[in-house]
Design a protein around this nucleic acid. Sequence first.
RNA 1: GCCGGGAUACUCAAGUGGUCUACGAGGUCAGACUGUAAAUCUGAUGCCUUCGGGCUUCCCAGGUUCGAAUCCUGGUCCCGGCA
Length: 345
Amino acid sequence: MLITTLHGPVSTPVFMPVGTAAAVKSLSRQDLEQVGAQIILANNYHLYLRPGSHNIKRLGGIHKFMNWPHPILTDSGGFQIQSLHPKITNEGAEFKSHIDGSTHFLTPETATQSQLDIGSDIIMAFDHSIPKNASYEYAKEAMSRTHLWLLRCIKTWKQHTSTLKLLHSPALYGIIQGGEFPDLLRESAKFVVAQDLPGIAIGGAVIGSNPRQTSETIAAVRDLLPKNLPLYAMGVGTRPSDLINVFKAGANMCDCVAPTRLARAGLLYNSESKNERIDISKSQFKLDQNPVDSQCDCTTCRDYTRAYLHHLFKSRELTYYRLASIHNLRFTFKTVSIFTQTQAV
RNA sequence: GCCGGGAUACUCAAGUGGUCUACGAGGUCAGACUGUAAAUCUGAUGCCUUCGGGCUUCCCAGGUUCGAAUCCUGGUCCCGGCA
């Protein structure tokens, strides 16, 4: 599948590196292009607080701001606000900034407008993400609220797009929320599909937590979703194999902080290890002259040894974070492309 | 040789009569990581344990005391100053 965006096409299945604050931590644009990133994710909540969506707009939009001329998807911030003990009503979510403690109120309208200001290619609906072990009642309420909010997101989005040519408008994706309950998931899927949006996402804690539950959740709704629309599984990809599973289950897009975050914590993807990774902090690598992964074609594996990366990690040298992130992302993209090739055959 | 200061766990270092297996930091080991409040966070770090607890530590040897890392005596080593 090819997804067209204002900043070029995205071929699926696609993994999107997370660049929350308009930066994929430690990596430059060139690094990202080299490892094979087509599209990156940025976060509305973080950018709304700092530097402020209106300021990004004034500076010419996020692509110009961060010098990334390729597609960008922004998350609405619904997921982030969940961790800030928000007061959620049907009107919106009140929460305190993690930066200065100031009180903010985000609504479907303002969250959508903020993403439009940022200049994202794909904007996500403002949703009420259902946490782990949520009761049926909680899940149902959050689902209904997510639906209500979706209609308001669409209204704001359409007001914006009507003033422009449709071709120059960002896409809006609706989000399915149903927790672990198949009937809610299906109800939510039907509702979101009925809105006739350019893309559909599935979110909540049931997605991404463990591969089996993720696959089962997607399987519960896949038959209801149009085959010609992208399905984005939010937050999937802790391990490279998770990507394969989620794509096999029928998703076309996913994102996860794991490749970059785990890299910074010392965990580097490796095709021959259990858990699909090695912990470079272990002293067993102190004198190991092998590359991180013998099959990997990334610049880190081509040019540096495990011993050196072990040393950099232990010394907290800034170079480590970049080299490690390059490896994990390249490994991730390589995993996706190998999967894509086997599917084509 | 004299005067003064010091010796605490893997390292640095706090503690100057009981609440001390001994603050804190680093190191080491283990664990966590989902639409990034994350170059972060958690736990362990004298020995043994039936997880109740038991035993042994603060340079060494004595001593005072109900009780000592802490006070006293002697010793060993290190640092500064003067010879």
